[in-house]
Design a protein around this nucleic acid. Structure first.
Length: 1145
RNA sequence: AGGGCUAUAGCUCAGUUGGUUAGAGCGCUACACUGAUAAUGUAGAGGUCUCCAGUUCAAAUCUGGAUAGCCCUACCA
């Protein structure tokens, strides 16, 4: 018996049933284990962080991952899916700090590093249960029992090994791929760490902010070099420079001009004080500060606050002329002026990056707070300004500390945060709170050093975690020299199959071509420690590549008396603070301390292909190139990975960079990047908007399959998805509802007939009916299309072809037309064939939908195959498997595809559709039979083709016969249109004339061309030959007939009604009414009944002539006119109602 | 500011190498069909294929430009 218990589709219930079944029978494990390890399809799981709740977008991303893994499992590959957790990094540290109510500065003071790290360790897995739950519920198959965890020693150790490999790898110039450098980097004082470029490239980091900007006036020092700017010795000559970061002004040390830009000297008055001044700025920028009509106004009449500022251009020169001109420090900090600064600071220098698009064409230059500034100062030999540094006099300490505060040496503002956002909310809201930038502006106004102070809106980078502005700040950091590998990384990238392609070539490709070095350093506590030890003077250093190596080094250190004992003999932890206690001994016998930095967490995740397995010490000792544990050898590189498009510069990059630089290999061959999940209005989901979709609720309500199917079928995964629960509902009803009902139908009748599938006794296809062979053909066409789409990583296309088959072909044509075969008569050969055909369609559909809808498809498969499982096991036949996920995916089979048959059926469908539309127009109900259908014949094969499906057409549209109308009948009137496709190429400009000519061809002309096969024509003096293919024929209405047409196909219906036809129609109506009564009265499908009808003239003929037919249709043993009985009033048509009594015999 | 993607019916999306009348589903209206159906069929309403220009006999499709949205890149002071 086939299970037919469910009255209605209940996907969540099916989910629960299947989950239990999978778990109890280890179906996932079996699906992996039963495949050959040598035939692997390698998948990498990008580790999520379990310190946040899973969202609906995770369901999206994981559906993509899961469906390709399942598909390739069905194809016979072994698809190991090791799960993983991302456990390090700033988000976790910040969360812990927030919860403990501490800041980074408190670590090591209020709380020990040890305690702090324990708190981090406890936090990272906070929502692991929720994640495991959603993983199970959404049907994502991944190994959760043995995940890789990035904080484990083995994992960290592998990261070390990779780092050491980079450390030892040298460029052609002899530079190491891992190096320490002093650079200006994005730095987040709030987070207390530098940020990598890809952290700065996180979505949402650039925000529009409104800053106080100042156009400052730098007073030129008169000397030989600047003499050309002075008309009189005591003239007040100043250079104008604009800044959006006034807090960098105390650190100003140079002004940069464009060497080829023209500059003007303007005599004017200082707008805030009214004192006379001569200003230098780019000529092109004059109009931004001076109105043309103000030129030449009388200086005497100006009063401070006036709208019109009198001025006069007195001189121009090039940027090159200004080079070397010296000026006074804008904000005097005499205690910071060294000899070097006195000699080479406060000068005009030149730089190519200067433009005249905004500002004054002069760039205020503070080398510690701008990468360009730093570069240009170094090139020009301009020293840095800051607090004196004894150890490195040429690298003074910056005037802003690591918390983002001015150091005390910046007298007036010492101790103040340079950005308002670094103050607490309460402080910012205090009545007399003024941002430091504003205080500086006020000071400059007062001191006659500001030309203009105004608010300016511009984009500024923010820390992706703290949301506070980033500073550019001088830091010592360790870098990976990615820039040295960019050509090779680009080349390797070209071998990767990106979905969509544009992400690989555009977004990712362009990024690689412009690759910067990867800043690895993080001055934090909870992460992978940088495994580099250095002597204090930096002259000797050692990069450690494994715990084994570290332990050996510690032994040496113990021997040298630097450490008391070696902690790596027993249990240990590679994190800070313990690792910081390790002191190594240098070859020269000096103590070496670890560089205190941690590494960027993105390195952790990019290292997962290797670190998920860990180091193999045997291989390590043998000097193996890739000393990682099995199954690394069969698990690299990945065949397939998938993640959100936001990972392009994240995980996709770090995987690629590490693989390329360490092993000259790609890390993955195919990559699918999915887009964002937006709300139904296309807006980003966010907690503040309250439009976040809860994945648990969604899945509970609609089931995982409908959710998954909707997400993939609605739009390509790389397009953003406008998530709308109504769409899930539609999928549930249309696809799963239809499939469910098709199965229920099958089960109902198979159970009645006691039929079960017998794999060893299937009827050959050529013995089956046209309709059977047609749906089988469609099915195997589907198999081909589906596999092609999936092999091409096009899941949306794959889902849509399955949907289309189920709805359009299987349910609405095959089943609809086959119904009578199932419910009538005994279990003969034709009925067997119908069962077998439908069974095959359903099992194959179960397989094809298994990847995307794992629950329902398994439910379907198991129901279909349960009655024959034991038999299949004995025969070792394909249906022996307990779960669809253990089966082998059906192979494409061209011998089962019959395109001619598909074409014939297409005719049948179109003819039926046309005939029904005529009935509709003529208001002739389908139950009323008609005499004949006329079909104009278009070409030689038409009759044979339609004859093949004639019976189906007649039954479907309730017509007695088909008559073909040929040329010879004289009824046919053909018309022709030009076939632009065939003619366009050969006719070119004469196309229009030809189209007109062909449209005007008469019936005779067309027939003549068809007979002779060619027609010579001339257009505009050019001779051509027309062939029948150049014409698209159609027939015009048949005079006196009701017709309808679709393209070239025309049908005509004989709507003449005879008494006999009317009686038959009434008989069919009666059948329908009686059937409805059976249904209403909940009779069993097989119950025999007795029918009494109220005598009525409207039905007498019908009962007399078609009584036997009616009895057969409604399973009646008797059908008679009764006189007095308690029947039900039934409406036969608008005029007639009568009583009908049905009862079970 | 630059790069990429997207723009087709009220909504979600198709639309193959340019080819004549641009499609589907949902939703809406009306009718019909059904002893599997939460279905289905037929008909109707709903489109300046974002806009402009170009190439071509022919453009939703190719080219250029513009506009809008999204994503990315960017310390341009």
């Amino acid at each position: 018996m086939y299970n037919n218990d469910l009255k209605q589709l209940n996907l969540p219930a099916i989910d629960a049933e299947m989950l239990k079944f999978w778990q109890e029978n280890r179906i996932f494990e079996q699906s992996v284990e039963q495949r050959d390890p040598e035939k692997s399809f390698v998948f990498f799981e990008g580790p999520p962080s379990a310190n946040g709740q899973p969202g609906i977008h995770h369901v999206m991303a994981r559906t993509v991952k899961d469906l390709f893994c399942r598909y390739n499992t069905l194809r016979g590959f072994r698809v190991e899916r090791k799960g993983g957790w991302d456990t390090h990094g700033l988000p976790i540290e910040l969360q812990v700090e927030k919860e403990l109510g501490i800041t980074k500065e408190d670590i090591g003071k209020k709380i020990t590093v040890d305690e702090y790290n324990s708190a981090c360790r406890a936090t990272v897995m906070r929502y692991k249960d929720r994640w495991d739950d959603i993983t199970r519920k959404m049907g994502y198959w991944v190994d959760l029992d043995d995940p890789y965890i990035t904080f484990n020693n083995e994992y960290i150790e592998t990261c070390w090994w990779l780092l050491k490999r980079l450390y030892e790898k040298k460029t052609n110039a002899g530079d190491s791929y891992l190096y320490k450098g002093f650079t200006i980097q994005p730095y987040s004082p709030a987070a207390g760490t530098g940020l990598s470029t890809h952290e700065l490239n996180m979505p949402g980091t650039y925000k529009d902010v409104t800053d106080t900007t100042i156009v400052a006036m730098f007073k030129v020092r008169p000397d030989e070099r600047s003499a050309f700017l002075f008309e009189e010795a005591d003239e007040d000559v100043r250079i104008m420079a604009w800044t959006t970061t006034p807090w960098t002004l105390p650190s100003n040390i140079a002004l940069t001009v464009g060497p080829d830009i023209r500059y003007a000297k303007v005599k004017t008055l200082s707008p805030y004080t009214g004192s006379p001044v001569s200003l230098v700025l780019a000529q092109e920028r004059l109009s931004a500060y001076f109105k043309a009509e103000d030129e030449g106004l009388d200086f005497e009449n100006f009063k401070v606050g006036d709208k019109s500022l009198p001025y006069k251009v007195v001189q121009t020169c090039s940027g090159r002329d200004l080079e070397g001109v010296r000026y006074e420090q804008l904000i005097p900090l005499p205690h910071l002026i060294t000899e070097a600064i006195e000699a080479r600071g406060f000068r005009v220098i030149t730089g190519d990056f200067v433009t005249t698009e905004d500002g004054t064409g002069v760039v205020h230059t503070a080398p510690y707070f701008g990468a360009d500034d730093f570069k240009v100062c170094k090139a020009a030999g301009v020293p840095f300004i800051g607090v004196f540094n004894e150890k490195q006099p040429d690298l003074p300490f910056p005037l802003v500390d690591r918390q983002g505060r001015f150091v005390p040496e910046v007298s007036e503002w010492g101790g103040r945060y340079v950005k308002a956002e670094y103050y607490s909310k309460a402080e910012q809201e205090e009545k007399d709170f003024k941002p430091t930038d504003l205080l500086i502006a006020l000071r400059l106004k007062e001191d006659n050093k500001a030309f203009r102070v105004e608010k300016y809106k511009h984009p500024y980078p923010h820390c992706w975690r703290t949301d506070k502005p980033v500073l550019y700040y001088p830091l010592d950091s360790w870098f990976i020299r990615a820039s040295a590998a960019k050509e090779r990384l680009s080349e390797l990238n070209k071998t990767i199959n990106w979905k969509p392609e544009s992400t690989g070539t555009g977004r990712f490709g362009a990024w690689l071509e412009n690759l910067q070095d990867w800043n690895l350093s993080r001055s934090r506590y909870w992460g992978v420690p940088l495994p580099i030890w250095r002597t204090e003077d930096g002259s000797e250093e050692r990069c450690v590549g494994s715990v084994l190596e570290l332990s050996a080094e510690v032994d040496k250190s113990v021997a040298a008396g630097l450490m008391a004992d070696n902690p790596y003999k027993g249990g240990f932890d590679l994190h800070r603070p313990y690792i910081d206690d390790i002191i190594l001994v240098s070859p020269g016998g000096k103590p070496m301390h670890r560089e205190t930095d941690l590494i960027d967490v993105w390195f952790d995740s990019g290292a997962m292909p290797y670190a998920q397995w860990g180091l193999d010490y045997e291989k390590l000792k043998n000097g193996d190139e890739k000393p990682f544990r099995v199954p690394f050898n069969t698990s690299y590189p990945a065949t397939f990975i998938a993640e959100g498009v936001d990972q392009t510069r994240g995980w996709f990059y770090t995987l690629h960079a590490i693989a390329g630089m360490c092993f000259d290999s790609v890390a993955y061959k195919n990559v699918v990047s999915n887009g964002l999940v937006l709300d139904k209005n296309g807006e980003k989901m966010s907690k503040s908007k309250g439009n976040v979709v809860n994945p648990f609720e969604t899945i509970d309500q609609f089931g995982a399959d409908a959710t998954r199917w909707y997400m993939i079928a609605n739009a390509n995964p790389w397009d953003n998805l406008k998530f709308d629960a109504d769409g899930i509902l539609e999928v549930r009803n249309k696809l799963f509802g239809t499939l469910f009902n098709t199965y229920s139908f099958f089960a109902l009748y198979a159970n009645l007939d006691g039929w079960t599938m017998n794999e060893s006794k299937v009827m050959p296809y050529n013995k089956r009916s046209e309709l059977d062979r047609w749906v089988i053909s469609k099915l195997y066409s589907l198999v081909e299309d589906y596999r092609a789409a999936m092999d091409d990583y096009e899941p949306t296309r794959a889902a849509r072809v399955v949907e289309n088959f189920v709805d359009e072909h299987l349910s609405n044509w095959y089943v609809r037309l086959s119904r009578r075969r199932f419910w009538r008569g005994e279990l003969n050969a034709d009925k067997q064939a119908a069962y077998q055909t439908l069974f095959e369609c359903l099992t194959v559909v179960a397989q094809l939908s298994a990847s995307l809808a794992p629950f329902f498809s398994d439910w379907l498969y198991r129901n279909l195959t349960a009655p024959i499982r034991e038999q299949a096991k004995a025969l070792n036949s394909p249906l022996r498997h307990e779960s669809v996920h253990l089966t082998d995916l059906v192979q494409p089979d061209a011998s089962k595809v019959d395109k001619d048959l598909e074409k014939r059926m297409d005719y049948a469908q179109r003819i039926c559709s046309l005939a029904l539309s005529i009935r509709k127009k003529e208001k002739i109900r389908v139950r009323l039979p008609l005499q004949k259908l006329l079909l104009p014949v278009l070409d030689a094969s038409f009759i044979a083709e339609v004859d093949g499906v004639k019976d189906l057409i007649l039954a479907e549209i309730n017509v007695k016969d088909i008559e073909y109308v040929t040329d010879s009948s004289g009824l046919l009137k053909k018309s022709a249109k030009a076939n632009f496709k065939t003619l366009g190429g050969k006719l070119g400009k004469d196309m229009k004339d030809a189209a007109a000519f062909i449209a005007a061809m008469s019936n005779e002309d067309i027939s003549a061309l068809e007979k002779s096969g060619s027609l010579a024509v001339t257009f505009n003096g050019n001779a051509y030959t027309l062939t029948p293919e150049d014409l698209l024929l159609s027939t015009e209405d048949l005079p006196g007939w009701k017709t309808a047409s679709d393209g070239a196909l025309t049908v005509a219906l004989d709507v003449t009604l005879t008494p006999e036809l009317l009686a038959e129609g009434t008989a069919r109506d009666l059948v329908n009414r009686i059937q409805n009564l059976r249904k209403e009265n909940d009779f069993n499908v097989t119950d025999r009944i007795a029918v009494s009808l109220e005598r009525h003239s409207a039905i007498e003929d019908a009962v007399l002539q078609f009584g036997e037919y009616i009895k057969a249709e409604v399973l009646a043993d008797s059908l008679e006119f009764g006189e007095n009985f308690q029947g039900e009033k039934v409406e036969l048509n608008d005029e007639v109602s009568l009583n009908i009594d049905v009862r079970v015999n």
